[in-house]
Each structure stands twice: as C-alpha cells, then as structure tokens.
C-alpha cells in the first residue's frame, strides 16, 4: 500500500522543522546536560584509576598503571571474575531451562488460576529485592547454603526465572499457534513439533532472554550481597565492599577495581546489544502488567 511506504521518512522531515522550536532546545539541552554528567562520573573513575595522586586540580599529578596491579592482586579480581562468570552462567542456563517451558504453557493456555500463577512470577520483579531478599537470605542460611556458590545462584534465580518468562511469553504468543496445528496435520508428533517448528522460531527470543538475564545477574547487587560469603562474592559485591571500606586502600585502587567491573559489564552489554535493542533491556514488565488489567 502506498501509505505503508510513507510514514518513517515523513516524520524525520517534519520533526526536523519542529526541532528548531524553543521547547526542543530545552529538551535537547537537558539530554546533553545528562550525558555530560554521565561522562563526568565515568570519566572521574577512569582518570583517577590511572593517576598517582589527585588531591587538587583538574587532572592527577602524574600517571601510573600500578594501581591496576594493586587492585588485581589485592581484590583478587581474577577469582571474582571466575565466580561472577560461574554464577551468571549457571543462572542463565537454569533460568532458560526452567523458564522456557513455563513461558510456553502460559502463552498457549488459559486456565483457572492463571492470574495467581502470573502474580507469583511478577512479584519478584515488582518488589524491591531487599524486601524478599532478607527472608530469602534467612532461608538460604537455614539450608546451610549461606555463603556458598549454590546459595548465590539460587538467590539470583528468584528474579531471573520470572524475567525469562516475562520476556518469552509475549514472544511465544506472537507465534501463530496454527503453525503447530499445521505441523500436527502434516503428521509431526509433539517432539518433532518442538524441535523442527518451535525451536527455530523461539531462538531469537531465547537469545534475548539469555542476554538480558546475563546483564541483570552481573549487575544484581542486593540479593548477592545478602547471601554471598568470602568464596562466593561477585564482582559488583566486591566493588561495594571496596568502596564501603574506602580508606583501607587508596582511592585509585578502588577506581581501578571499578574499571575492571565496568569493562566486564560493558563487554557483556556490547555483546548483548548486538542481539537485543536497548529498550528491550527495560521494557519486559510492560506486556504482562498490561495483561493484569
């Protein structure tokens, strides 16, 4: 249809005209102000990690890489990275394995009590982690899993499984169920339908869900903080301890530590953004909350 070809370019054109109005300048000014401060915050961390001394002035007095060495050894960054990767990997794998079938059933079936089940999956995301984190930590310590890697994995799974379900349910919903019927008419059994029809169609959704959970788990602080012990501390929790106990080590070392954390997070983010759009990283709750009403 001719009208289909029109919208995108059109709006760029009209937008361009409007964007010269004062209100636009104000909005763009605010955005730029935000960006400058963001760069300032991150820049401060990076610059100070390379500096020898920085008490006064725009830049440190001299430059050095030695604090990276200090941070790497003192904070055992290698060990932290290993733990973080183990936790994140396990969480992603388990959350996908457990969450995908549930998402499928929720997308395809309407049954009595579905709302309660949905609520059960929605609450861990809608509640501040600290509120259910403390009872959860209590429970995990009760199971003698406090401070262990398994305990940290379990704690991280609590928001991760609902997360996978919330990302995948709308994704599976938009796959036409008639495709499955068609396959069945053609003689495929359930197993074949799953592997030959559904699996290839779900892969993009799975990838998105996995990456989103990965980004989340690496940055998730509160729950890990509450259940982790010396051998199960992830990078972000270690960073918190480092900052909280500042004074023990020079600020530059903490900055270097922060840079390690930042690099690993950004690396994952860059990988993730090749496959998912930035809006996807935040807007997962939308569809399901819409359903509730």
């Amino acid at each position: 249809m001719a009208s289909l070809a029109t919208p995108p370019e059109v709006q760029v054109k009209t937008k361009w005209k409007i964007s010269k109005s004062p209100s636009s300048w104000l909005v763009w000014g605010a955005v730029i102000f935000f960006f400058i401060n963001l760069v300032g915050v991150i820049g401060t961390v990076v610059v100070s990690s390379f500096g020898t001394e920085w008490f006064d002035g725009w830049l440190p007095a001299g430059w050095t890489l030695s604090f990276y060495q200090t941070a790497w050894h003192d904070y055992q960054v290698a060990e932290l990275l290993k733990v973080t990767l183990k936790v994140a990997g396990a969480v992603v794998l388990i959350a996908i394995l457990v969450g995908t079938p549930a998402a499928y059933a929720l997308a395809r079936r309407d049954f009595p009590g579905k709302r309660i089940v949905m609520l059960c999956f929605l609450l861990p995301i809608m509640l501040p982690p600290i509120t259910f984190g403390i009872p959860l930590a209590t429970f995990i310590y009760k199971l003698n899993l406090g401070g262990t890697l398994l305990g940290v994995i379990i704690a991280n799974l609590v928001p991760a499984i609902p997360f996978v379900i919330l990302v995948l349910t709308p994704f599976i919903e938009q796959i036409d169920p008639r495709i499955e019927s068609a396959a069945r008419i053609c003689g495929a059994n359930t197993w074949q339908i799953f592997w030959r029809i559904l699996a290839p169609l779900i892969v993009p959704g799975l990838l998105a869900a996995a990456l989103l959970v990965l980004v989340q788990t690496v940055a998730l602080f509160e729950l890990t903080y509450l259940v982790s012990g010396p051998t199960s501390t992830t990078l972000v929790v270690a960073l918190y301890y480092a900052v909280f106990a500042s004074g023990i080590r020079p600020y530059q070392a903490i900055s270097a530590m922060a840079v390690f954390y930042m690099l690993s997070t950004l690396f994952i983010l860059i990988v993730a953004l090749r496959f998912v759009s930035p809006t996807q990283l935040v807007s997962r709750v939308r569809n399901t909350s819409e359903e509730k009403n």
């Binding site: 915050v41 991150i42 602080f221 900052v243 930042m262 997070t265 950004l266 953004l273 990283l281």
Partner: peptide, 13 residues
Amino acid sequence: IIPISLGTVLIAE
C-alpha cells in the same frame, strides 16, 4: 542503557 547496566554501586562510586 549504560548507567542502568553499570548499576547503582558503580554510579555511587
């Protein structure tokens, strides 16, 4: 999206 994925701890630092 960067400040979101960096998390509150790093922003605070």
